[in-house]
Amino acid sequence: MNNLHLGTLLLGALLFAVPAAAPLSAAEEAEHPVFINADEMKWDSAPPGLPAGAKATVVYGDPHKPGPFVVRLMTPAGYKIMPHWHTRAENLTVISGALYLGGGDSFDYSKAHALKPGGYHYLPARMHHFAFTDMPTVVQIHGEGPFDINYVRQSDDPRGQVR
């Protein structure tokens, strides 16, 4: 057996022998792979920039710092995020449920596009958009941090509202 084939076999065995791990610190991220199953994710209330009722988990990185990140957002049925924008581009994949996304400065159900499980959406930086669900939904968002959310109308920003 040649060394290349033996090395490939050992690497494959090692990958299957390593247990799933929680996300690593920013310093460790670049040096180690991350393995995490859905049932190992720790969910908490979504950050105050989002309406109350959703849960969030950081899968990889730190969305508040420069660098790559992956987060998941779990929303109840009837969840709405009013028109807003982000300083950086947003990549979104629906894991379960359905997410409806529309563009512009006004929330308009009729202008939304439905994304089903496995559906993907790319949104350029600073593009105004809104979102809602009609069933419990989980989405994965990834991009380059720092991630922010800026509401088109200040009155729609939940950070100034009692939760």
Rank of each mutant, 00 (worst) to 15 (best):
S110V: 08
I81F: 09
F35R: 11
A20S: 06
K65I: 08
M1V: 01
A56W: 00
T87R: 15
G104T: 02
V94C: 03
A17M: 02
H121K: 06
V70S: 08
I36D: 01
K42W: 00
Y100C: 14
V139W: 02
A114Y: 08
R88A: 04
H113E: 14
G104E: 05
G143L: 11
R163H: 08
A17T: 01
L10K: 02
E28S: 10
P158T: 05
H84P: 03
P136E: 10
D108S: 06
V139P: 00
A125K: 10
K42D: 07
H142R: 14
G102I: 08
P158G: 04
A17Y: 00
P83H: 14
G67T: 14
N37L: 03
Q161V: 13
A52K: 11
P63Q: 14
L123G: 02
D156A: 01
P83I: 12
K111P: 00
G7C: 07
L9N: 05
T93Q: 15
Q154D: 05
G12K: 10
L50M: 12
I81T: 11
A89D: 14
H84E: 12
K80Q: 07
V34D: 08
P124Y: 00
A26T: 04
D157K: 09
N2R: 06
L50P: 02
D108V: 03
P136A: 04
M1I: 02
E40Y: 00
T87C: 11
I141K: 11
L24A: 05
V152S: 11
E28N: 11
L6S: 07
A20D: 10
V71P: 00
P117H: 04
A21Y: 04
A52S: 11
P68F: 13
H5I: 11
K55H: 07
K80V: 08
